[in-house]
Design a protein around this nucleic acid. Sequence first.
RNA 1: GUGACCGUAGCUCAGUCGGUUAGAGCGCCAGGUUGUGGCCCUGGAGGUCGUGGGUUCAAUUCCCAUCGGUCACCCCA
Length: 446
Amino acid sequence: MTKTWRNIRGAFDILPWASVADGAAVPGSAAWRYVEDAIRQTMARFRFEEIRTPILEEEGLIARGVGEGTDIVAKEMFVVDRGRDRYVLRPEVTAPVMRAWLQHRLEQRGGVQRLYYIGPCFRAERPQKGRYRQFHQFGCEIVGSDDPRADAEAIALMLTVYDAFGVTGSRLRINTLGLPEERRRYAAALRDWLEPHRNALSETGRRRLDKNPLRLLDTKDEREQALLRDAPLLVDFTGEPTRSRYESVKQCLDEAGIDFEEDAMLVRGLDYYMHTAFELDSPDLGAQSALAGGGRYDLLGAALGSDRPAPGTGFAAGMERLFLALDAQGLSVPETASLDVFLVALGRDAQQWAFREAQRLRREGASASFDLKGRSMKAQMREAHRQGALFALIAGESELAAGVVQLKNMDSGEQTQLPADAAPTHILQCLGDARANDAPVSIPSP
RNA sequence: GUGACCGUAGCUCAGUCGGUUAGAGCGCCAGGUUGUGGCCCUGGAGGUCGUGGGUUCAAUUCCCAUCGGUCACCCCA
């Protein structure tokens, strides 16, 4: 075998059918479309509007927005070098959305912008379950409001998306990260507190202690978790405004009947988060347990050089992980509609007829298909069946000469002869009847 | 970037303690039905056993490297 080209590491093709590639379940394009549509519907119910930003952004935007010190910026970005300019494939969408908000002065549109996005992002990490180099995120950004209810709104929207799919068993954790000064004071205090226990920490724990003590909080090492149980908490380093805004968020969630756990150990990896932080975990995802997460980022605008206040809050969620959760819970997605008519033709003239007739049916709104290989009738009938055709419209040379065609109901098997001219009208009428009582078909998903 | 495991038909996998033509199921194609699908029967196509090198009389099988995959670490939505 000569070289067969294949998609690059960490990316994958979404094929017309649900397929399994190299052991990893990859949903088909129909499943993707279904899930994307359902997400859009939920977003629309919350009256969020879609924003689509370029896949490519200036490197500086991401570096400043996401944070120079983050791993994403330090080593996980795909850079496109155009000589004078350096672009990156976006690793996340919040910074681009903020860029668009600032660039287009969206605050002048009046009111608060409730925006959502859905699309691919890129990170040059080693792939792993639920984690790819080209991955797909959806999420919302509420820009222009620093109201605690906006945080609750983002959380409510996030949960509603998963509810709409029937995903259960996931856990919402929330925390406050306070203001940057409060966090700095806390980080210093935490470091001081941990320093005497340095020897009890793992190697990576010690590295985090030096680099970013807050990151120690979400350690998976049980010994470290036990140790941290007695560590100082961030809340104790926050002032009254921070605490009361955190209380407001929690109160909103309570009033909306949203269950959550407070988790003082929850921290976020990106620099722009402050105040409210939250994460949604699923028990079904393996090591990458986060379905979605988010928080408030009131200083992101300033980090991008804006002198206008640009308070914002939102969540980001992974499509691939949503699929994993759907799959783990045995939820399926409906398959797309079946084919209305398959035209079966025998002979050259009949093939021309089938082509013309298909166009005519399609113009009338029916879906129609036909064979493109000049195959036997048996093969064409098999194809019609495989495509789930409701009707087969059959014609050979003799029929055409006589001005008639055969219409076969693929379900009942009954077949009738019709004048060729009358066939389309008749079919459309039959389809109308059939549509009245069609039911969505279920396929085993992802 | 690090580690572990894995790499045989389109897919899921057997198999060879190193030895003549490498198998199954599903799928695909065709025939059984000289113009009619699903079920059934029969047949066929499709593999340089990921690639390169080494050991050997002989390698798909053993060894090394490499590429690719999976999972995990790091880190993170």
